[in-house]
Nucleic acid binder design. Structure first.
Lengths: 340, 340
DNA sequence: CACCTTTTGGAAATCGATTGCAAAATAGTT
DNA sequence: AACTATTTTGCAATCGATTTCCAAAAGGTG
């Protein structure tokens, strides 16, 4: 048997290993941490013994003692939209990049999907004592709660929009500008009766809608229609279907609040024989990897999720280090493909 | 100020709160846990004081003491396929459901994306002392490591295929049967030159390929071609493009190893003027929510991810409770849509 | 050989909670 | 008032590591 952790009577803590090797727990601790304070020979002997018995020190105890957990909380607040869940492709896209950046730096990820029922939900997460820092994905309708906590808790970075004067550190695109770009694109395609598809409750989405309105106003068009749609994908299809009858008569250009909504919309239109982009133009928002793979490929506003995720992690580490990283607002970009 | 955690000098532990309220730490602990052992009045007084100062007991310490973390590790081993990441839609779909089921039961989720470089990667996770249980998504090429750990670590459930005689508890569909169904579907559509698209390294995918071979053999057709494709979405498109020239001459029916691969394939074929399903038939595997939304909608083999996720969590809880839940093998189902 | 420096390793405090046990306070009974 | 029964509370051990402080041992120098 080569490297089998053979002996079954497992060692459960550093004290047992100490007894087994005939030294004190302090020495074992130092040896396992490979500290030069302990004699090279004993150090190696202890390490060998640990390996042989497959012993690994309890992280919970270690973390309690050193007051550092090496765990970052990644939290999705679902204020409205309780039915949305983690499979939202935008969320998963950003999660993937966050996971990459965090694991590279030796941090683990604690995932929370929170329905903010109690009003101290964020406080509860933040001083659970389990986390070195918190990344919030989206502000939802919890702007106030976030601000309140940001007042005293520094290592927190939020994906979302930046409101003038806000305390918390946010990273995101200029959503209003993004909405504007989408509007301009539709208008340039000759569309005159615009609509916004999505629920403009979270500040991010509200900003996108406002941007669209800006564009319409600038072109002398009537204000865009607002077609509410839940973000949960299981009801989204129905929501969109419910709006369909207005489209074609009242609407010839749709700015969707997200790529996912846009894709569902294109699908629903196709089901009813309305062609995109011949009969109607559609833009998405996010530029998910998927957006390039659909048929027809989606015209959309790019959020450069990868860059954003890196920015979030960078800001978070600076804040963990003690300095007060500022918010980041990135420029959105129009990606012209086939739907508008 | 109504319920502001006003006083800034924050209480950092139960001892300070004890001093402030004039009782012992034991009493405070019991009061905060709302135990009836402590007098209703003092209990409420202590709770009020805690609330006022925004005090919440340190979870790390509590968990160390009670030897229960209420954290489940969700781990994605990336044995081959280091470039694949968490944004894989199959993974995120199952993660969403797992998250739902786990949070419902009061558990948190620790996410790990592991590249098994050290051969004790799983041991390290499993006895970090941070987890009450582990859910593994996919067996990758780590079947051996999983078996080794399963020998002595019970609270672990793995998404993947069930090999005869395996020790670890797995939940998944009968992949071979699934491959068979896909093959039959293609054959029924009159296809005679079949191919499997995907990397048949992980046992799940190998089984699907074998099932496809079964179907071909049963119909008296030559063995299917194997078109290797990485699972990372950024290289997948290129991989598929590289295969395209063989398709149309050598191949008229593709069984893809996943919906994602199938979608990319359809896309690549469309780019080259090859129509699906007129010129060539394609089947997916997974039945992601997305598969119904593509154009054309994907014919695929259903894994019923939601059911699977529930089964995993159920089995895990049984195992945490001490009983030895058995593996679950679900029946795959052909979902006929537009691509085959 | 006396004195100083450097290694080495042990004892004990610490991180912040939980909990078994026993003492104290209160209530209830005669 | 005395005595038992019942609540409440405090004390101290415990979870499993890390780390400071200190003493003993070893090595070096004049």
């Amino acid at each position: 048997m080569p490297d089998t952790p053979s002996a079954r009577p497992r060692i459960r803590n550093i004290a047992e290993l100490a007894r087994l090797t005939g030294v004190s727990t302090g020495t074992v601790s130092r040896a396992l941490a490979d500290k030069s304070l302990v004699n090279k020979d004993t150090r190696e002997r202890i390490q060998a013994m640990a390996r042989e018995h497959g012993f690994r020190p309890n992280q919970m105890a270690r973390r309690l003692r050193v007051q550092e957990t090496k765990v970052i909380g990644v939290v999705v607040p679902l204020g409205h939209e309780q039915r949305q869940h983690l499979s939202d492709p935008f969320f998963t896209a950003i999660l993937g990049h966050l996971a990459d950046a965090l694991t590279e730096n030796g941090y683990d990820i604690m995932l929370s999907r929170v329905i903010p029922d109690a009003d101290d939900w964020l406080e509860r997460i933040v001083d659970s004592g389990m986390l070195d820092g918190v990344l919030l994905i989206g502000q939802s309708n919890q702007f106030e709660a976030i601000e309140r906590v940001a007042q005293w808790y520094r290592p927190m970075v939020v994906w979302g929009s930046h409101q003038p004067g806000q305390v918390h550190c946010s990273v995101g695109v200029d959503n209003r500008k993004g909405g504007h770009l989408a509007g301009e694109c539709l208008i340039r395609a000759g569309r005159k009766r615009l609509a916004f598809m999505g629920e403009a409750i979270a500040p991010e989405l509200k900003d996108r809608f406002d941007g669209l309105c800006d564009a319409a106003a600038a072109a002398g068009l009537p204000p865009p229609l607002k077609l509410d749609t839940h973000l949960a994908s299981d009801v989204m299809a129905e929501d969109i279907a419910a709006h369909i009858h207005r489209i074609g008569t009242e609407v010839d250009g749709i700015a969707a609040a997200s790529d996912l909504i846009a894709m569902h919309a294109v699908r629903a239109l196709a089901d009813r024989g309305i062609r995109v982009p011949q009969d109607i133009s559609v833009t998405g928002f996010d530029d998910l990897p998927l957006a390039e793979q659909t048929i027809p490929r989606l015209t959309t506003i790019s959020q450069s999720i990868a860059v954003g995720a890196r920015a979030m992690v960078k800001a978070l580490f600076e804040r963990i280090g003690g300095s007060d990283a500022a918010s980041v607002e990135m420029a959105p970009q129009l990606i012209r493909r086939d739907t508008a």
